[in-house]
Nucleic acid binder design. Structure first.
Lengths: 139, 139
DNA sequence: TTTCCAATTCGGAATGACTACGATTTACTT
DNA sequence: AAGTAAATCGTAGTCATTCCGAATTGGAAA
């Protein structure tokens, strides 16, 4: 997912193109890692000093619902990143130093489904946390 | 893990045996599922009306650090349950209706380690969410 | 048993992420 | 160019969690 595609999806879903939304999406495209609402607000403070918290949270939530963004919860905070382009299901390694991610192919859900035939499975979360090669060599 | 074992571990680590700690541990032993700090406080309100939030949170955190409890974050809340007795590493299915859990054997971390040799892996989270057989037939 | 002190608890206030809301502004249609 | 629903602003509210000083207490030592 990138800025242009995101704007297209917003339009096709009946959302308006506003300066706030453009700024938030441009930032997330540029950063390419998980950011909190606070991170977004701070990063945009210089160019958009009057953008309210409400606007940041409301748009991040909308973007997540539209699958423009991926969302996770980390350290008691909601975090958002541009939705990956890869086809189909995937999980992430997340660097706890810089927030950057690495996509993971493995997912054990087929085994789990087989092991729990009487259970209704609605969702799952698989995330790996650590230090990426860049941050490793920098520390 | 059960009440007696938990009390032993507290003693061996130099923690005092207090009515608050006994009540919290007895509740968690009885419930055998993930509870939030608020759940614990509410459940103990009848017998321990003066137990403060601070006491609940501080003890839950201590118990978690001592591996008396297992902890996860769900819906923006920290949740705690008695630590499972099983040997070694495991994950959980969590019923979103009643909070009860089912232990899972599968864990894909070996594959992940092999796939990311240049990354430092510190931690990971794998949880499956849905409805347990009891809640399924009740709904 | 009594004394004593560090650990624990209490009660309430502070923090921080997130949400709600009325008033105002704006993107987009006609 | 006008009208309208959507979006934003600014602020206040909520909720989980943490902090803090004062009071209490468990358990070791005398």
């Amino acid at each position: 997912m990138n800025f242009e595609l995101a704007i297209e999806r917003l339009k096709s879903e009946g959302f308006k193109r506003t300066p706030s939304r453009e700024a938030i999406l441009r930032l997330l495209e540029l950063e390419d890692r998980y950011l909190s609402a606070g991170d977004v607000k701070k990063a945009l403070a210089a160019d958009h000093p009057t953008m309210s918290q409400d606007t940041v949270y409301r748009n991040l939530t909308s973007f997540s619902e539209l699958k423009i963004l991926e969302e996770t919860e980390l350290g008691g905070e909601r975090k958002f990143r541009m939705h990956c382009d890869r086809h189909g299901h995937h999980h992430h390694f997340i660097c706890m130093d810089c927030g950057r991610t690495e996509e993971l192919d493995v997912c054990p859900m087929e085994q789990v489904s087989r092991a729990l035939p009487a259970f209704v499975i609605d969702d799952h979360k698989f995330e790996v946390y650590g230090q990426c090669p860049d941050c490793r060599s920098a520390s």
